[in-house]
Each structure stands twice: as C-alpha cells, then as structure tokens.
C-alpha cells in the first residue's frame, strides 16, 4: 500500500491529508481525476463505494470526495478534489467505475454539478423541479417554500411569514 501511495504522490502530485486505520485521505487536482482513477483501478481499487459533495460557501468551491474500496488491500481511499462554484464541472468517471454513474446523477440533481461524459444526468428524486440545486448552502428552502406555495394574504398561512 505504501508503494502505491508514494507512486500516486510522485506521478500525480497528490497530497496525503491523513491516514487512519484502513483509510487514507488525499487531495488531488481535478484535472488528474481520470488518470488517477484509471491508475487505481489497475492497482486493485475495483469497488466504487460512494461520492460525496460538499458546498463550501466561504471558499466559493464545491468539494467532491470519491470513496474507493480495495478488497485486496482492505483499504478505503478517500480522494478529495475541488471545483469552482461558478462553473461546477468535472469529468465523469462513470466509464471507469460504472457504479459511479448513479452517484453522479444524484450529485448533479442536488448540487448542480455537471459531470462531463456521464450518459444519463436526468432527474432522479425531484420531479418537475425548476428551482436552484436544493442542497447548496445558499438555498434557503424555507424562503423557497414560502414564495412558491404560501400566500401572505391568506389568514391561515400568515404564520409562516413571522
């Protein structure tokens, strides 16, 4: 495992953030994602566990964490990468890990991230949704519901505006 980590470090300039029991956290440049995933799949990381997105308002970025599992090495690799909030775009890894396709579709719907090369980014949970991506930190759902579904003039619904 150590050899593999040092290879990723030297080959792609990845930064090791922390090491835990059976888990390694690293940070990479978003341009290297495809190459790193290809490299990892060839080296035993054949399970795609999960994809998390975190909206970080103060840095104006969306952070993506790819969680990969290697049955052979019994290790989870958490690969972090950042994309800009203004233009949330990143290459899809669904051609390397088929299981990531559905995770990317979910993140696309809830965070508005565009995964270039993903075959299907159609709506998943939400139906006829026209508002902004609902899981972003600056989306105030209370405000949205008030504007869209309630009426200030209605006696029964006045309470929602206090």
């Amino acid at each position: 495992m150590e050899g593999l980590i040092s290879k990723i470090k030297s080959k792609f300039g990845a930064e090791i953030l922390k090491k835990e029991k059976n888990q390694i956290w690293m940070k990479i440049n978003n341009k290297d994602l495809i190459n790193i995933c290809n490299f990892l799949k060839e080296n035993g990381f054949d399970f795609f566990s999960c994809l998390s997105a975190i909206d970080i308002l103060e840095n104006n970025i969306i952070e993506l964490v790819y969680h990969l599992w290697s049955q052979e090495k019994k290790t989870i690799l958490n690969i972090k990468t950042e994309i800009s909030r203004e233009k949330p775009e990143i290459n899809s890894i669904s051609k390397i890990y088929t299981a990531s396709q559905i995770h990317e579709r979910e993140i696309h719907e809830l965070f508005g991230v565009n995964f270039l090369g993903n075959s299907d980014l159609s709506e998943l949970f939400l139906e006829d949704w026209s508002g902004p991506a609902p899981f972003l930190k600056d989306f105030d759902w209370r405000e949205y519901v008030r504007e869209k579904f309630y009426n200030k003039e209605n006696e029964n619904e006045k309470g929602y505006y206090n």
């Binding site: 999960c50 998390s52 909206d55 969680h67 299981a99 979910e106």
Partner: peptide, 24 residues
C-alpha cells in the same frame, strides 16, 4: 451502508452524506 460527515466547529454537522445499499 455508509455515512460521510463533516463538522465545522458548531453543534450541527456541516454536511452529512448517506449511502444506502438499495440506491445501487
């Protein structure tokens, strides 16, 4: 089943991601 959690020094989590097995 998996949970990713991020804290930011407040009493509420900053972000929680839940992965259910049935999703796949």
């Amino acid at each position: 089943g998996a949970i990713y959690i991020k804290g930011d020094g407040t009493i509420n989590p900053y972000r929680v991601k839940i992965k259910g097995p049935s999703f796949l």
